[in-house]
């Protein structure tokens, strides 16, 4: 039953990664001698440091903001029977349905090109675009998960004297913990891989090598240095894997089917 999925996982996931790792050894533009020193050479690229600072800026400000916003909005939507609930969820979702390429141009027009052309705004603009396009789908998922919590459990909480905030903090959030963990991992991974937003703002000449993914893409497709591109991409994968491992080891993320909450 699982064979079709495994076949796709091997051919579209594991084999390409293996191929990429082997390819890193080949002599390339960044490392003429070849070998795994390519991993160190790409890190010595003067563009990588500032790109990592840009990513840390997004990770420090926008990712926590996205997590808090998604959870607060989902909890608020779930807390009361609100007439315009459906419409509000749709409104949050719509920015995420626009292809990123169009969203960047759209947001450039919304904030005004004088704002876009100001270098001090670029980080904020990229963060705002990824924020607006990123929260809607997670609100749909987290709202859906909150709707599934048993009414009996919540009523028991009310009987025990919980107010709405305590219901949310002590019952609802712990019950959807695995979904929250999943969201956190993917939001961080998406931020580490951010490519489209800065790439589409390249017409400003301020975001040419803004993120590590852009630099990796530049290696592979502009300098025809596939080894360098893959090496940098794999380095960027390390924090993701560490984070994923931490979640896997410290939560019940991978436990088999357990007794239902209902």
């Amino acid at each position: 039953m699982i064979f079709p999925y495994l076949a796709f996982m091997f051919f579209c996931g594991i084999i390409p990664i293996g191929y990429g790792i082997l390819e890193v050894r080949n002599p390339s533009w960044v490392n003429m001698d070849g070998g795994f020193e390519t991993f160190i050479k790409v890190l010595q690229d003067f563009r990588v440091g500032p790109a990592i600072i840009n990513i840390l800026f997004l990770l420090g400000i926008f990712v926590p903001l996205m997590i808090v916003t998604v959870l607060v909005v989902s909890l608020l939507l779930d807390a009361t029977e609100f007439r315009y609930n459906k419409q509000m969820r749709l409104l949050f979702l719509i920015p995420g349905l626009i292809p990123v390429a169009v969203a960047v141009l759209f947001w450039s027009a919304v904030v005004g090109y004088e704002v876009v052309w100001d270098k001090s705004n670029i980080r904020w603009l990229i963060g705002a675009i990824s924020f607006s396009t990123g929260i809607g789908s997670w609100i749909v998922i987290q709202y859906g998960s909150l709707r599934s919590i048993s009414q009996e459990v919540l009523e028991a909480g009310v009987v025990d004297g919980c107010n709405r905030f305590q219901l949310a903090w002590r019952l609802k959030l712990p019950m959807i913990g695995r979904y929250i963990a999943y969201m956190v991992i993917l939001l961080i991974a998406n931020t580490l891989q951010i490519f489209n937003e800065p790439n589409l703002l390249m017409y400003t000449n301020m975001t040419t090598d803004w993120s590590p993914s852009q630099i990796a893409f530049g290696y592979a497709f502009k300098n025809a240095d596939f080894a360098g591109g893959v090496a940098l991409s794999l380095i960027m994968l390390i924090p993701n894997l560490i984070l994923a491992l931490l979640f896997v080891l410290n939560t019940d993320f991978m436990k088999k089917s357990k007794t239902t909450w209902r």
Partner: peptide, 17 residues
């Protein structure tokens, strides 16, 4: 874990292979 790991890999690394 492989499912999770392959999800985290940048498309830049996957596109060429």
């Amino acid at each position: 874990f492989s499912t999770l790991a392959t999800m985290l890999i940048p498309i830049t690394a996957m596109a060429m292979p």
